[in-house]
Design a protein around this nucleic acid. Sequence first.
RNA 1: GCCCGGGUGGCGAAACUGGUAGACGCAUGGGACUUAAAAUCCCAUGGGAGGCAACUCCCGUGCAGGUUCGAAUCCUGCCCUGGGCACCA
Length: 802
Amino acid sequence: MKNAPTYEPAAVEARWQRLWEERHVNEPDVDRPRRPFYNLMMFPYPSAEGLHVGNMFAFTGADIYGRFKRLAGYDVFEPIGFDAFGIHSENYALSIGAHPAKLIPQNIATFRRQLRRFGGMFDWRHELSTTDPRYYKWTQWLFLQFFKAGLAFRKRAAVNWCPACKTVLANEQVINGYCERHPDVRVEQRFLEQWFFAITRYAERLLRNLDALDWSESTVAMQRNWIGRSEGAELAFETPGGAVITVFTTRPDTVFGATYMVLAPEHPLVDELTADEQRPVVNAYRREVQTKDIVSRKVGEKTKTGVFLGSYARNPATGEAIPVWIADYVLMEYGTGAIMAVPAHDERDFEFAQQFKLPIVQVVRLQGQALPIVSEEGVLMHSGQFNGLTCRDGAQRIVQWLAGKGLAKAQVQYRLHDWCISRQRYWGPPIPIIHCDRCGPVGVPEKDLPVELPFIEDFRPDDTGVSPLARHREWYFVKCPQCGALGRRETDVSDTFLDSAWYFLRYPSTEFDDRPWDPQRTKTWLPVTTYIGGNEHAVLHLLYSRFVTMALRELGHLHFEEPFPKLRAHGLIIKDGAKMSKSRGNVVIPDAYIQKWGADTVRMYLMFLGPFQEGGDFRDEGITGIRRFLDKVWALAHEAAAAKARPLPPAVEQKLHQTIKKVTADTESLNYNTAIAAMMEYVNEVRSADCGVRSAMEPLLVLLAPYAPHLAEELWGALGHGETIFTAPWPGYDDRIAAGGDVEIAVQVNGKLRGLINVPRGTSQDDVVKRALADAGIRKFVDGKPLRKVVYVQDRLVNLVV
RNA sequence: GCCCGGGUGGCGAAACUGGUAGACGCAUGGGACUUAAAAUCCCAUGGGAGGCAACUCCCGUGCAGGUUCGAAUCCUGCCCUGGGCACCA
């Protein structure tokens, strides 16, 4: 022990990172694995600041799981890549006056270095970047498949427009109605022709399949929420001029209480239904609404505004004429863009009716409740032949009745919208479409893919509202593939979420340039065995990936429809009580910590902060505890290398079996913090028993290998093993040894702990009570009173009730 | 407003299915080693009261109730906090 070398992580880690690469340790046989295990983590966006501890936390947690499975005998494929297209990169490049095409490769190089340094078990042969033409060729191919299948289509849609940036903004870039880069410029609404993917066609399946997925509950809940299924009915309100206003409602039972109607200001029937004397007011209101951006219209001021169109529609239940209004609290993109307003039973309608003095008719009675009564627990009134029915029965009967007259049908509505994939930006894959005056939009022939993103020195958006790509004349004008006439390329690029919606399909097949994914490889590795990532992608990324997979399956390109049968969401690393972000200036870059303490220590420290699936608070203080632990393991292993073999004392042996059991279970369930605590307890035990021998240390090193891979490798070698530790078997345990011979039983009197006794495992209740009553300290509380009841939990506790 | 989490020592956190609350680690205090410091090692550490002492007792898991022999854990109501959604008809 005297001559043990000191633990120098930097040297150990560099050595093993080199050896892993030289010996291809982390590269499974992708063609003929015996037990394939696809261990996927969400790939990073390579920011200019470099990988931060939040990334490292996520990757470490995923990597531990992959290494654990490797030790359990699987051929683990653990790829990594870069999600490098997108507005983020582009805006950052703009802000520092650089070009993303130059910036991104630098960022990726930094990330690559950091990812190697922390010791991830990555198969670098299969690295990918979404900005690589070899990758986005297939992103474009995917678009074409959807286009051919009618799943990609064009539609005019409202977008956020910043008059200062002179470009379209994503919803996330609008902060309370103002541009994120121009805090004093109000964002406006513009209508542009956009490309959409028909995700809503899969709404029901996306929802239904959730039941069968092994996912974190919170993630499932968010997806359910987002899809937002609601059952109700479509009702028809006829107008004197012959036009029919169709509304969606979840409360057809309240139709007798519909005293007015509201259309979204953009509703196509507005012109037709506007009376001449109201036209000036109506037009003024519509203009006003248009200058509001979409986000602030939804989130901002909640005071209701609206104007009367000057015309009426017939309530299909009462037959009465009710006024038709427009108001911006009704949204064109949900339902039919029109509602029947039932002020007595809807808070929004109630507020609106009060403000504009519209009639309020109560049709649901519920004891002790004041209007508006929103609950569905009540009983119908003022509803003709339906009086006295419960809301639920009433709804059904009323829809039936109106359906008989052709004025209603049951309807399911989703909140989910079709996915707008157009971006009037530069830094993304060009949408592979050529517009021809004769043929319309024509797909670029697959043999001409990729449509390479041309290098444009000035990629800044201009005030035309057209993507910068339109300025590149020799790129922009191109022959129509169908008729040969002069056409124009689509100048929008696609959403970054499309890049990431299929990357997991590409990883196993990165070396093929003639197919997006190889059928054999895909059959071998997919669907992904375990996917680990952050809940910030609970909705968009995961939903889009599921949709793309589902659609590809239907088009015959895949053999499965759910890409991620098992998903676990990790928590968030907090710093100084707040989420890490550049704007708060509390982003921690791990490099300095790794340099000072070693990657193994930082990995374990991050995992020890708290439960992996909940996250933790990053502080510098605790890290020494982990390093001390690894120093002890280092010393003990070197001691063991020199020591003679001798049997383990029973207490150490028992602790060893308990530790193997706990670390196995906790690692499988991603409870890394408690697994680490268990290993610490074991090391404390070995030290206090002064028993640093091979049989005590070898199993520990294997348990530790997923957490501190470099150190485990080094010490495994020091104990004389020539092979990597990752070929060793995961240690087993014997439950009987773990349980041990004697047990300590808690003795309670009237539920309060009064003493502890030691008895052999399996002692009967009578004997335990006898032993307990023999103890003076316990008898004192029983105090001669008769035993009323005895509760005995085998080998744990006895409660004497007196 | 709606849907998920979470509230436990000075701090990060443990606690199986209701069964010894605070494992493990940090920090702190004391001691050993050292000329000294660092490192390392040993001991103590939820709060309070009593005792020279080994020790003994009381209180304690956001708050107020309840169920139970027994509640951090289950139930009811409330408070605080993190996240998601948000005029979705």
